[in-house]
Write a protein that binds this DNA or RNA. Structure first.
Length: 202
DNA sequence: CCGCATGCGGAAATCTCTCG
DNA sequence: CGAGAGATTTCCGCATGCGG
C-alpha cells in the first residue's frame, strides 16, 4: 500500500545522507558534534536512524555542514526537470507534526522551493545558524494563518501574505489558527564557491 | 496531578585501526 | 600478536509534553 510518501524511508534516506556528508568531509562524530552543538550520542543515533531529529536539531546539523535544509533533504540522484509529488523528499518533525516537502528538482540550482504544512497550534523553531548559508528567503502563506518571529519581531501572515526574511536570526514558525497552515518557501542559497570550509557556528 | 512516551546528553563499554 | 589510541555504540538518567 503506497501512500504519497514513506516517512520511514525518508528517515532512512536522511540518516544515510547525514552520514555521507560527514564522511565526505572526513569528520568524526566528535567533529560534527563540536561544530553543530549536538552530542556525539545523538548524532550517532540520528545517523543510524534510531532517533528522529527535531527541526531545531536538523537545523544545527545542516548549518554545521554549510547546507540548507533543502540540500540536506534533496535526493542525490536525479537530474530531471520535473519532480512528481511522489518523488519529493518529505520530512515530518516528530515534535510538532510539521510537514516539510522539498519541491525543487535536484540538480544544484541556487533557488529552491519548499512546501510547508504546520498543524493547528504547532510551533517550529530554527536556530539562526540554519539560515547562515541562505542569501534570500521568502514565504507566502497559501492557507490558514502563520506567525513568523525573527529575533523579537513577530510577523502575522494570512493567506496570500508574503514575508521576506532578514539576516540570520533565531526564527519561529507558529500556526495560531484552528486549521492547518500551508505555505510556500522560496530559498536562494548563498553563492559560496568552495564549500571546503563551512562557516564556523557560534 | 500523575504516568507514559520521547528527545536528548553524559559516561561507560565496545569496536577498529595502527604501530612496534 | 599485543598494546594503545581513537572512534563509535550502548546504557542510563533527566527534561518536557501530552493525555487521562
Amino acid at each position: 500500500m503506497s501512500t504519497i510518501f514513506d516517512e520511514s524511508a525518508a528517515t532512512t534516506r536522511l540518516a544515510a545522507r547525514l552520514r555521507a556528508e560527514r564522511e565526505a568531509r572526513g569528520w568524526t562524530l566528535a567533529d560534527l558534534a563540536t561544530r553543530s552543538g549536538v552530542s556525539r550520542a545523538m548524532v550517532s543515533k540520528v545517523e543510524r536512524g534510531e532517533a528522529s531529529p527535531t527541526a531545531a536539531l536538523l537545523g544545527r546539523l545542516s548549518a554545521a555542514y554549510g547546507l540548507t535544509l533543502s540540500q540536506l533533504f534533496a535526493q542525490v540522484e536525479g537530474g530531471g526537470r520535473v519532480t512528481r509529488v511522489s518523488e519529493q523528499p518529505v520530512w515530518r518533525d516528530p515534535e510538532t507534526g510539521f510537514l516539510r516537502r522539498s519541491l525543487s528538482p535536484p540538480g544544484g540550482a541556487p533557488m529552491e522551493l519548499v512546501w510547508g504544512e504546520l498543524p493547528p497550534g504547532a510551533k517550529v523553531a530554527y536556530p539562526a545558524p540554519a539560515y547562515s548559508h541562505i542569501a534570500d528567503q521568502q514565504v507566502v502563506v497559501l492557507d490558514g494563518v502563520l506567525v513568523i518571529t525573527q529575533g523579537n519581531v513577530a510577523h502575522d501572515l494570512a493567506s496570500g501574505d508574503c514575508l521576506r526574511f532578514g539576516p540570520p536570526q533565531d526564527t519561529t514558525f507558529h500556526n495560531p489558527g484552528a486549521v492547518p497552515c500551508r505555505y510556500l518557501v522560496a530559498v536562494l542559497r548563498a553563492a559560496d564557491g568552495t564549500d571546503a570550509r563551512p562557516t564556523p557556528v557560534v
